[in-house]
Design a protein around this nucleic acid. Sequence first.
DNA 1: GGGGAGAGATGCCGC
DNA 2: GCGGCATTTCTCCCC
Lengths: 243, 243
Amino acid sequence: MNEFSSKIKKALDRAETIVFGANCTVNYSGRAETHLPKGERIIMIKGDRTLLVHQPHGNTPVNYMKENSVHDIIEKDGKIILKSQNMPLKEFIDIEIDNVSFISSAKMADGQKIQLTGNEKDMSDMIYTDPSVIETGLRPVSREEQTEFGFIDVLCHDKDNNLVVVECKRYKSDFSAVEQLKRYVKKIKKSKGIENVRGILASPAITANALTLLEENGFKHVSVEPPMRHDRFKKNQKSLGEF
Amino acid sequence: MNEFSSKIKKALDRAETIVFGANCTVNYSGRAETHLPKGERIIMIKGDRTLLVHQPHGNTPVNYMKENSVHDIIEKDGKIILKSQNMPLKEFIDIEIDNVSFISSAKMADGQKIQLTGNEKDMSDMIYTDPSVIETGLRPVSREEQTEFGFIDVLCHDKDNNLVVVECKRYKSDFSAVEQLKRYVKKIKKSKGIENVRGILASPAITANALTLLEENGFKHVSVEPPMRHDRFKKNQKSLGEF
DNA sequence: GGGGAGAGATGCCGC
DNA sequence: GCGGCATTTCTCCCC
């Protein structure tokens, strides 16, 4: 049993978070199948037994196993193989390890949750609180807490008392945003037995083709930015710690 | 300048891949804004200057910066702060580092690309090669290389010489898959000036509601699994290296 | 556990 | 760059 193997085994037993660099070959089988020829990667095993394989470039892991996978180091024919399996998901990874450039492990704990501002819910909050940012005369009726109609972002009455479905997107709207709005308007018409239901898509922008489809359906687009405490970093780098 | 700071600076200069464990606070500003209170995390900076912050649990990074971000360690008021910025994307991260449990760095290179089997393209290849897996009498007309109609997975003629649009999904089909198929059929009808265009959704499964919408439009679903060399790992664990 | 939808989605390819 | 779309999408929320 070489030093690397015993370190890994000990750290796995202790549910430590493990990171190592290695020249390795990776094979995955599960929802799909992948093969990654030999190269230098960073491998991370977390305390919850998540496995990540990262190439030394790019954002996303090249291979991974979800939490509660089972990992073991075996040595066979002079080769060291990290075998990971997740039986409930029927997923398997074998990592053949040729060379280890570094290895670290530590017991780590972190119960904190990230706090995020500027998502779609913040947008619909803003619009529900003050629908005039969308159109003058709009009055809020209900929001997200799914009505009888489903997951409709914001429901309003306009100045002529028509029902208005407002669908929010924090990013540029595409076909599927328009079709989502179509489904919701259709559902409300059917559910309420009324024909006069308007649809508004609220987002920072919309693709030309989606706009065509939107207008073919008699709906309109309104340009809205997701609410953020803009430019915190640029305006005042000193205040970074003051969240 | 403490030892941690100088190690990081040196490794950044050399474009090494860096991994360290630390108790830290993370603030992000860019497309949205996030705050992550103090806790133990693994931080990775890659050779392409991607930054990842991982909590000791879960699949996805809790914060990140894309490649070509600029990183620097500064010390201020006795605090060590890793500042990352990506000016083209107007994105910023500050990581206030309280305690370092380990740090490793190494020059790493990996030009290999992952080879994947069992994706949607493999499915449409299979169906184009032998459309009888979908329906007897189908003959292939064209595939993905987007025709004048757009990105249609597979186009066939059925035994009665009707045009058939086949849309493949490797996972369970939902509303948006049905609506994609609707768009394609509509586009072809308009483009060809014909009414008799059929639509088939080929996927392992479909949600009940999506099936309703599908059938309302006169289309049908066919159950197809993405092609894989099934059960490689389960059948013969010995052959793992033989890719 | 499934359904539905958002995501700081990411990544790929085409134009 | 934008557009359209797949992803071993992942994640969350709700039924």
